[in-house]
């Protein structure tokens, strides 16, 4: 049994942080795509076409029911097999792209729900007032409704980003060297002698960034809603 050496935690932190750019790349790309996919499904759920409502609802509940890990396995291991049979070769796709795709899909359901409820939370009278002064529906949306909906969505968006950030740690499961992957690599480099210290270091790094993001969310909320709501 190894003895616990707190100093090893400090030694591991800079090594793990070397992979920080990779984690950020995954985080930001997934964030962008999840917002786009989420927006598409939010629009579908708000549309007057019943079919689109059902598709959107089905997508959201499917994504909410499947563990991200299974989604990763399904897409990384399963999808190429299926596509190969119809003649599409996926071997050129990078591991990072797979992870970004999976996390985007996984988080997009939450993003869709966030946008939908933020839109619905804006008072109906706002749209009517905008139309009554002669704005077109599109102008009314971008100038009146969207700014208010964004203000409403900020806390949830912050939570979703933090959740996404934590989920980037699943990148290691298919061999991407994100911070978690790096932690595992560092651990096996010394034959697991200080694995506990290394994982604690990884945990502390994640915690620190989550803490900052939470503070950032609060600042953003304050700055954005300044003067709008009293």
């Amino acid at each position: 049994m190894n003895t616990f050496q707190p100093i090893e935690i400090l030694r591991a932190i800079p090594k793990i942080l070397q992979a920080f750019p990779m984690t950020m790349l995954i985080l930001l790309s997934s964030l962008l795509f999840s917002l786009l996919i989420g927006a598409a499904f939010a629009m579908m759920s708000l549309s007057h076409k019943k079919v689109l409502n059902v598709i959107s609802k089905g997508y959201v509940s499917f994504m909410r029911g499947i563990p991200t890990l299974i989604l990763i396995f399904l897409i990384y291991l399963g999808l190429p097999q299926v596509l190969k049979r119809i003649g599409i070769d996926m071997s050129g796709v990078s591991l990072t792209a797979y992870i970004i795709a999976c996390l985007s899909l996984s988080v997009s359901a939450n993003m869709s729900e966030m946008m939908r409820s933020a839109y619905l939370a804006v008072d109906k009278g706002q749209r009517e007032a905008a139309l009554s002064v002669g704005m077109s529906p599109a102008v009314a949306f971008f100038r009146v409704i969207l700014p208010q909906a964004v203000g409403i969505a900020i806390p949830t968006l912050g939570n979703n980003i933090i959740m996404l950030f934590k989920e980037t740690s699943l990148a290691f499961t298919i061999g991407v060297l994100d911070m978690m992957g790096k932690a595992r690599a560092v651990s096996s480099a010394n034959y697991g002698a200080t694995k506990l210290e290394i994982y604690i270091a990884a945990g502390l790094i994640f915690w620190a960034f989550c803490f900052l993001m939470e503070k950032g969310t609060r600042l953003a909320e304050k700055a954005y809603t300044k003067g709008r709501r009293t």
């Binding site: 049994m1 934590k166 740690s169 699943l170 694995k195 994982y199 945990g203 803490f211």
Partner: peptide, 25 residues
């Protein structure tokens, strides 16, 4: 609460898996 909410589940699992035996022992 802040710590647990800031740490990914995988890391929590690993830490519990490696730390608890040490602590119990």
């Amino acid at each position: 609460v802040s710590f647990i909410r800031g740490v990914p589940m995988v890391i929590l699992l690993y830490v519990a898996y490696y730390a608890l035996p040490m602590m119990i022992y």
